[in-house]
Lab assay of single mutants.
Amino acid sequence: CFKERTRSLLREWYLQDPYPNPSKKRELAQATGLTPTQVGNWFKNRRQRDR
C-alpha cells in the first residue's frame, strides 16, 4: 500500500501525462521513494483501470 501523499503525487502526474518516459519515472521514483518499476506498474494499472 502506498502512502496517501505518494498516491496523490502519482495521480497529479498521471493527469498531466498518463505515459511517462523512463526519465520521468526515475524522477517520480525519487520524489516518492518507490522504485521506477513500481512507478511504471502504478501507471500501467491506472491506465487499465481508466479504460
Rank of each mutant, 00 (worst) to 15 (best):
F2A: 11
N45G: 05
N21L: 08
T35W: 02
A31H: 13
Q48A: 14
L34P: 03
Q30V: 11
W42A: 03
F2M: 15
Q30D: 14
N41A: 06
E4T: 07
R26M: 11
E4C: 04
C1Y: 15
A29S: 12
Q30M: 13
R11W: 13
R47I: 05
L10Y: 05
P20K: 00
E4I: 04
E12P: 01
R26W: 09
R51T: 06
N41M: 09
P18I: 06
T32H: 14
Y14Q: 02
R5W: 08
E12N: 15
P22E: 14
S23Q: 13
Q38H: 02
G33T: 03
R46I: 03
R5A: 13
T35S: 13
E27G: 02
K25E: 14
P20H: 00
P22L: 15
L15F: 12
L9T: 11
K3F: 08
F2W: 06
N21H: 11
P22M: 09
P20R: 02
D17H: 00
R47H: 05
N41Q: 07
W13E: 13
L15E: 12
Y14L: 02
T32C: 13
T6G: 11
T37C: 13
W13R: 06
A29E: 01
D17I: 01
R7K: 15
Q38K: 01
G40S: 14
K25Y: 09
P18Y: 00
L34C: 02
E27D: 10
L9F: 06
R26V: 14
A29C: 05
S23K: 06
K24A: 15
Q30C: 10
K44Q: 14
N41W: 07
E12C: 02
T35I: 03
Q30E: 13
K44C: 02
E27Q: 08
Q30Y: 09
R11Y: 07
A31M: 12
P20S: 00
T32G: 01
R49W: 07
Q38W: 03
D17M: 02
C1S: 12
R11H: 10
D17P: 03
P18H: 13
R11I: 14
Y19D: 08
Y14F: 09
Q48T: 10
T35D: 04
R47S: 04
W13A: 14
Q38D: 00
R49A: 10
N45V: 06
Q30R: 08
F2H: 12
R26D: 04
A31D: 06
T37K: 15
K3M: 05
R49N: 10
E4M: 11
E12H: 08
N21T: 15
T37N: 09
Y19M: 09
P36F: 15
R49P: 02
A29W: 04
T6P: 07
N41H: 11
P18K: 12
T37V: 12
L10P: 01
L9C: 04
R5H: 06
R51H: 13
R11A: 12
R47K: 05
L9D: 02
D50A: 05
Q30I: 15
E4A: 00
K44H: 08
K24V: 12
L15A: 15
N21S: 14
R51C: 03
G40C: 12
S8H: 12
P36C: 10
N21G: 13
K24R: 12
V39Y: 01
Y14R: 02
R49M: 10
R11C: 07
A31W: 08
K24H: 10
L15R: 15
Q48V: 06
L9G: 03
D17Q: 02
K44E: 12
G33Y: 00
K3T: 12
D50W: 00
A29G: 07
L34N: 01
L34G: 04
K25V: 13
R49Y: 13
G40Y: 01
R47M: 00
T6I: 15
R49G: 08
K25R: 11
T32R: 01
P22G: 13
A31S: 11
P36L: 12
V39Q: 03
F43T: 00
W42K: 01
L34D: 03
E27C: 02
T37P: 07
R47Q: 07
F43K: 01
L28H: 03
Q38S: 04
L9W: 05
T6L: 11
Q16W: 08
A29M: 00
G40H: 12
T35L: 03
R51D: 15
K44T: 08
E27L: 06
G40W: 02
R51S: 15
S23T: 14
Y19F: 12
D17E: 10
K25N: 08
Q30H: 11
S8M: 14
T6K: 06
V39A: 02
G40P: 01
R7H: 15
S23A: 14
K25L: 13
R5M: 11
L15V: 10
T32Q: 00
F2C: 09
L28M: 14
F2T: 12
P18D: 02
G33W: 00
T6C: 06
P18T: 05
K25M: 14
N45L: 09
Y19H: 08
T6A: 09
Q48F: 07
S23N: 10
G40T: 11
R5Q: 09
F43A: 00
D17Y: 00
F2V: 12
R47N: 06
R5I: 07
K3C: 15
Q38E: 05
V39P: 00
S8Q: 15
P20F: 03
E12F: 07
R26F: 10
Q30A: 11
T32K: 00
R51V: 07
